[in-house]
């Protein structure tokens, strides 16, 4: 179970990374295209879609790695018991909030599909296609929050806080 979860988190990070590579390639293609006089149609649109996909697909991985930042100044001074309550409370809150956000994003995809929404650029891309990674990304984030919530309920430390207290500089 734990291994599967780790794999899923890594998958979230790698997919997001793949999108960053995709942006690089698209921009390079556009530069090369300009030198040789051909157009990469809708390159800007596709780069934008890849950017959205990278931001959202990477949410779960970033969450688990403690990459999403927060203010820990006050909560660091809590006693271990109240700290547990505090983490449980904000995880429950985040779970509720992100469930709503997941619903909103999934509904956006559904509506784009229903109304045959297309992009405005060169190629009329059906919008539900590039919007799907956005919805999937937030749902994956929800699973990551749920995972952390269960960990806290079990009385253990969630993996994001292990990471966020160590300095990012000391990796490597």
């Amino acid at each position: 179970m734990k291994q599967i979860k780790e794999k899923l988190y890594l998958c979230s990070g790698l997919l997001a990374g793949l999108c960053i590579i995709l942006i690089t390639l698209l921009l390079l293609a556009q530069i090369v295209g300009r030198l040789f006089g051909f157009i990469v149609p809708s390159a800007e649109d596709f780069a934008g879609y890849a950017l959205a996909a990278s931001t959202f697909l990477g949410l779960a991985y970033t969450f688990k790695e403690g990459g999403h930042i927060r203010v820990t100044l006050l909560i660091q001074r809590f006693s271990p018991v109240s700290r547990k309550w505090q983490e449980g409370l904000i995880l429950a809150f985040s779970l509720a909030l992100m469930s709503y956000v997941s619903y909103a994003c999934a509904y956006m995809v559904y509506e784009s599909y229903l109304y045959d929404e297309v992009s405005y650029g060169y190629i009329p891309v059906p919008l539900w296609i590039p919007q799907t990674p956005v919805a999937i990304g937030v749902i994956a984030l929800n699973l990551a929050i749920l995972d952390a919530f269960i960990t806290v309920l079990k009385g253990k430390t969630p993996n994001y806080s292990e990471h966020e207290d160590t300095l990012a500089l000391e990796e490597i």
Partner: peptide
Amino acid sequence: GAVKSSCMIGF
């Protein structure tokens, strides 16, 4: 590493 930072800023 880039995913972690840019995803945080992006969100």
